[in-house]
Amino acid sequence: MIELAKVYKNYYLGEEEVAAVSDVSLKIKPKEFISIVGPSGCGKSTLMYLVGLLDTPSAGKIFVDGKDVSGLSDSELSVIRNQTVGFVFQSFNLINKFTVLENVLLPTRYTKLKLAFDPGRRAEELLNKFGIYERRNFFPNKISGGQQQRAAMVRALIMNPKVILADEPTGNLDSKTGEEILNLLERLNRDFQTTVVVVTHDAAVAKRTQRQIKMRDGRIIRS
């Protein structure tokens, strides 16, 4: 579904060139539950953002559904992000001036196609399923971290994406809440048949996934 072929990503820190991702080839298949593990600074987040088309590779190619995306324009990439990818972040990244419901509906505002579902109804269903329907008219900073992360997951799911990319989704939560979030990710992989990629430095989290991709110094050392 998403395939990376000999992908490199280099950054410039002042004069010095830093290789964040080197020579990574990777295939993510439909319905997979994958983790990308490694110590901090190993390039796992960079890799995830490359997969999510939020960042572009310095070299190499990325294919989405067999189609090379390297030549696509910024707005074409935005459209793919909108329809195919859902992000879940460590710090939730909800917009505080909007209510939970408005945050969840935001991706539907940016869609360029006619939606196959009623956004309002789908949002309600998902909020219900994730147990935060009662909090829909609250502002994000007025609810708990666990509830914020649930809202973020609903936002990631609203467009019915093929893949959910979660960057340290439990990193800002206590272990009990983190466990709940992991259960939810597991469930949506199982029940919604959505591909889930979790980026983590925590081996315990990685163990919950079907496939672990280990990284060090920008390279995949085991997949």
């Binding site: 999510g52 939020l54 910024d74 707005s75 935005s78 459209v79 992000r81 909108n82 329809q83 992000f87 990244n93 909800l94 917009i95 935001l106 991706p107 940016y110 869609t111 936002r155 467009m159």
Partner: peptide, 16 residues
């Protein structure tokens, strides 16, 4: 800036 990043991640184009 952060808000712009979030909006871009969920599919906002430059024009949006």
């Amino acid at each position: 800036t952060k808000e712009v990043g979030i909006r871009r991640a969920i599919g906002a184009t430059q024009k949006d």
